[in-house]
Simulated assay, not measured.
Amino acid sequence: MFQGTPVYGGLVVERGNVPAMVRGQADRLHRQLAQLLCLVPAARPRPAPTDAPGPQGTSAVL
């Protein structure tokens, strides 16, 4: 399977296929987050307060 890369093949035999394990965990987390995001209602942006300072610290009221 890893004939072209003997070092990688040896590591897989010794330590397991770590990239495949990480990919599997990432896929699992992605599915869980997708389920959670479907349950959470979309956040609506709050309107800015009317007495907020202008761009240079001045009041927006004229």
Results as ranks from 00 to 15, higher is better:
31 R>T: 15
22 V>N: 02
11 L>W: 04
9 G>Y: 07
41 P>T: 02
17 N>E: 12
27 D>E: 14
41 P>V: 00
35 Q>P: 07
21 M>W: 11
7 V>C: 12
50 T>R: 08
8 Y>C: 01
6 P>W: 12
32 Q>P: 01
6 P>L: 02
33 L>P: 09
46 R>A: 14
19 P>Y: 05
18 V>Y: 07
39 L>V: 11
27 D>F: 04
7 V>Y: 06
8 Y>W: 10
9 G>M: 00
12 V>K: 06
47 P>H: 12
23 R>S: 15
28 R>E: 02
39 L>P: 00
7 V>W: 11
58 T>G: 09
36 L>S: 08
26 A>P: 07
50 T>D: 11
44 R>A: 01
34 A>H: 03
58 T>A: 10
29 L>Y: 06
32 Q>A: 05
55 P>G: 09
38 C>L: 15
8 Y>A: 00
60 A>H: 00
40 V>N: 03
33 L>G: 11
7 V>D: 14
48 A>C: 12
31 R>E: 15
17 N>C: 12
18 V>G: 06
60 A>M: 01
1 M>K: 13
11 L>P: 06
13 V>M: 07
16 G>N: 11
38 C>M: 15
50 T>V: 07
1 M>F: 00
7 V>M: 14
49 P>F: 00
47 P>V: 09
25 Q>C: 10
21 M>E: 11
45 P>I: 01
43 A>V: 13
34 A>E: 03
56 Q>C: 13
51 D>S: 10
45 P>E: 03
52 A>P: 08
29 L>Q: 15
13 V>I: 05
19 P>C: 10
40 V>D: 05
35 Q>H: 09
5 T>R: 13
25 Q>Y: 08
42 A>E: 10
43 A>N: 14
52 A>N: 02
50 T>Y: 04
62 L>G: 04
19 P>S: 07
52 A>F: 04
53 P>K: 04
33 L>S: 10
25 Q>V: 12
49 P>M: 02
27 D>G: 05
42 A>W: 06
51 D>C: 09
25 Q>T: 08
16 G>L: 08
44 R>M: 04
15 R>G: 12
61 V>I: 11
34 A>W: 13
37 L>N: 15
41 P>G: 08
13 V>K: 09
61 V>K: 10
53 P>Q: 11
9 G>S: 00
36 L>P: 03
2 F>D: 00
60 A>L: 11
6 P>H: 01
2 F>A: 05
56 Q>N: 15
33 L>W: 04
53 P>C: 06
48 A>L: 14
7 V>K: 14
31 R>F: 14
19 P>T: 05
18 V>E: 13
27 D>I: 02
13 V>H: 04
45 P>C: 04
62 L>D: 09
52 A>M: 11
56 Q>H: 09
1 M>C: 07
